[in-house]
């Protein structure tokens, strides 16, 4: 079945280390190879601070790997690439800009036609359910709404690959749950290749077509799970619960 999929992003043998307090280099990401297929919802699951974010920053081109390379559609990534959209854990909204101006930051900065990108932005604002808040400032929004702005911003950039770095990590449980539903709806309406990072097993199982489980620091691939449960998923479903148990027993404790 996987043969049918087209590989969009090829990560081969990347490693990254940082100097620690004693000045020695410590591995954060250890020799990871990974293919991301077209249109899939890939979840990177690992304990907190396991090096997932470092991996993500390398995929996004914000950091250079020490070894190995990241290739998107046959082109090696060496610097940030607008073809990859990113939704950040800390939302990263510019507090002095309105919702609309935040969302159109990318295309505006590239000098695209205002009429075209405003129209596109409006489409995604409507999609994430923020209609009527275009002129609001981030401080006037709740945590969940801020994250919706972040998602709309990433989509407005029309990325080939959408990276979401623990987007709901800072939300309360209720909001988190409803945002997960929201993401499912959005993905159904506008299918894209998505890399979603989380430390929450349930969230991973709710959303992921494929789950990559990482070890604790340094990050290595521990196991890959294919989640063949139809969406929307039921958290009480038997297969769901069994997978949940299996992954949970396999997960390293974050210290």
């Amino acid at each position: 079945m996987e043969q049918k999929y087209l590989t969009r992003l090829k990560i081969s043998n990347i490693s990254k280390s940082f100097p620690n307090k004693e000045g020695k280099r410590e591995l954060a990401v250890d020799n990871i190879s990974l293919d991301v297929y077209d249109g899939e919802f890939l979840v990177l699951l690992g304990p907190g601070r396991c090096g997932k974010s470092v991996l993500l920053n390398m995929i996004a081109g914000l950091m250079k790997p020490d070894e190995g390379k990241v290739v998107l559609d046959g082109e090696e990534i060496t610097k940030p690439n607008p073809q990859m959209g990113m939704v950040f854990q800390k939302t990263g909204l510019l507090p002095w800009l309105t919702v609309m101006d935040n969302i159109t930051f990318g295309p505006r900065q590239r000098g695209e036609s205002k009429k075209i990108y405003t129209e596109r932005a409006q489409k995604y604002i409507d999609m994430v359910g923020l209609t009527g808040f275009e002129k609001s400032y981030p401080y006037q929004l709740s945590g969940g709404m801020k994250q919706r702005v972040g998602i709309a911003r990433a989509y407005t950039n029309e990325p080939k690959i959408l990276i979401m770095d623990e987007p709901f990590g800072a939300l309360d449980a209720q909001t988190r749950y409803s945002m997960e539903q929201e993401v499912q709806n959005i993905v159904e309406k506008d299918r894209r290749t998505i890399i979603f990072v989380t430390n929450n097993i349930e969230e991973a199982l709710m959303l992921g077509d494929r789950i990559i489980l990482f070890t604790n620091y340094p990050a290595r691939i521990k196991k890959i799970y294919d989640v063949n449960i139809s969406k929307p998923r039921d958290t009480m479903d038997r297969t769901f619960l069994m997978l949940r148990k299996e992954i949970s027993e396999n997960t390293d404790l974050a210290l």
Partner: peptide
């Protein structure tokens, strides 16, 4: 740094980031 990264991810140059992220956040 998070805001600087946002600008970088959307392809902004260093000078654009300076003008549109650095300066306004310093106001």
């Amino acid at each position: 740094q998070a805001l600087i990264n946002v600008a970088k991810v959307y392809g902004a140059s260093n000078f654009y980031t300076f003008l549109h992220v650095g300066v306004p956040s310093t106001v």
